[in-house]
Design a protein around this nucleic acid. Structure first.
Lengths: 117, 117
DNA sequence: TTGACAGGTAAGCCATTGCTAACGTATAAT
DNA sequence: ATTATACGTTAGCAATGGCTTACCTGTCAA
């Protein structure tokens, strides 16, 4: 099967830019045209077009032509790769929080002791 | 309280580079010195040092000096920000997968019908 | 058919990134 | 005291990224 050949941008790179994350956030609510999207940013429409291309190449959005408009919508599937990568760390930060918690409790105990002096 | 002032690198940028992700992956197993880490990459040690600085600035690793060695270890806490961002999308890709599943089943049904011709 | 609008794309610019080679500075070993 | 080791840092380079302006194409409206 051969779909339209695209540049194959990796997910991590795609979401690295704040504008692109905000684009995804906007599209998470509802699909929108390019101008509609662009109107919500400071940068020019071509800049948004370019960001959308990156997202398209990463498979994070799809476009649908309606007359002279192009409606972009979110395709969240590639984000699962990110989630999978994170998975390996999840238990680690939970451990980390537990240790922090222990430490804080210890600290509080010591302060109480100090108050009793 | 004033810790050492750092450049404040954002988490998304920090994990955008494959070498930096691999560094985190290595440190997830056990803390290691710079040379130890560098030996596992193609690029030179200074390059690894620079990547480690980015991770340090992002708060994703910490260093501990032991004689002339610096032992780096993982500090997974900032990854929670990523997890939080992803959270908003999790139900979306689940929906997406459900729809994909429905579509595939529908496809299979049609193929079976076709076989029966 | 002519004009307006949506939006992709190219050119050019500047800032940033990622790398290496070279150097500097602490600590450890002889 | 000298030398070796571990590592950060700097300078310089090529490549990339992100932006704008200008331009081009396709569609809708008058």
């Amino acid at each position: 099967m051969k779909t339209v050949q695209r540049a194959d941008v990796d997910t991590f790179t795609a979401i690295a830019h704040p504008v692109r994350r905000q684009l995804l956030d906007l599209l998470a609510n509802n699909e929108q045209s390019v101008s509609e999207l662009a109107s919500q940013f400071e940068v020019t429409r071509p800049a948004i077009s370019q960001h959308l291309k990156v997202l398209l190449d990463a498979g994070l959005v799809s476009e649908q032509r309606h007359g002279r408009e192009r409606i972009y919508s979110l395709k969240p599937a590639p984000l699962r790769e990110l989630d999978a990568w994170l998975e390996a760390y999840r238990h680690l930060w939970e451990e980390w929080l537990d240790r922090l918690d222990e430490y804080l409790q210890e600290l509080q105990t010591k302060e109480t002791e100090h108050d009793e002096d």
